[in-house]
Design a protein around this nucleic acid. Structure first.
Lengths: 123, 123
DNA sequence: TGACTGTATAAGCAATGAGTCATACAGTCG
DNA sequence: CGACTGTATGACTCATTGCTTATACAGTCA
């Protein structure tokens, strides 16, 4: 696929199969709670792997693997400093996605609450 | 979780584990190429199941199952009309997500092309 | 050099989920 | 009613992937 195929895409034009695969792949990376958690932790600044392990409450190999996934997708970058590896957000637009989803979900929750208020009454 | 917990979330405040799970779940729904394809097909208006099956080139049971997933996540709604079931977008903000990902991906592709132009030269 | 810390990787297991096939169900039409 | 069409569901297979454990590798410090 030409490099700028996606960029040049007209509004509402059909995405190519390759483009759809890339879009779905990006969403799939964000479809894992632990990875979203890691991104949230990095939202306030870089952290090294150990700090992330402690912050998200998982094992070091597991966090390391998720960081690899996040890096390969271009969302996170890593910088080695001596013994440690510092991770930081490489594509801040990912937070726009998260915020948009939060907004959409909260709208839905409020709407559902209106439809069935008895299920959501404060305790 | 209180209904408006997500809605009231402060900017950069930490998301609750439940909120993170919900966000990841929404992304996971979008992490399947066929589902993105179905959403794209519905972008220009409602379609019944048979039309979707023909449009996306999959089997009827498979499309039906993905439609169920899309409906349960609140992205798509269905309306029965006689023998047929018409599907339509129930949360148009999903296209904002897709477009944002496309923009991000194209930026990355262009950037990578600058770093390694020989890999992206037009054939 | 050797001991230690921080990170990455490999192997194995278990769960998830996409796809297929067969079939059930519902609506229409004769 | 029976035949037919459109859609949903259940059972199954297979590939993917998250997690764990053990281990390898790299950097630091004595």
């Amino acid at each position: 696929m030409n490099v700028k195929t996606i960029a040049r895409r007209k509004r509402h034009a059909r995405l190519s199969p390759e483009a759809i695969d890339m879009v779905a792949a990006r969403f799939r990376v964000l479809g894992e709670p632990l990875r979203v958690r890691i991104l949230e932790e990095l939202r306030n600044g870089q952290k090294n792997v150990s700090e992330l392990v402690a912050a998200v409450g998982s094992t070091q190999p597991n966090v390391s693997k998720h960081l690899r996934t996040l890096q390969e997708s271009g969302l996170v970058a890593r910088r080695q400093d001596g013994n440690q590896v510092y991770c930081y957000i490489d594509d801040p637009s990912v937070f726009d996605l998260c915020d948009a989803v939060c907004t959409s979900l909260s709208r839905r929750l409020v709407r559902d609450a209106r439809l069935a208020p008895e299920l959501h009454r404060a305790r």
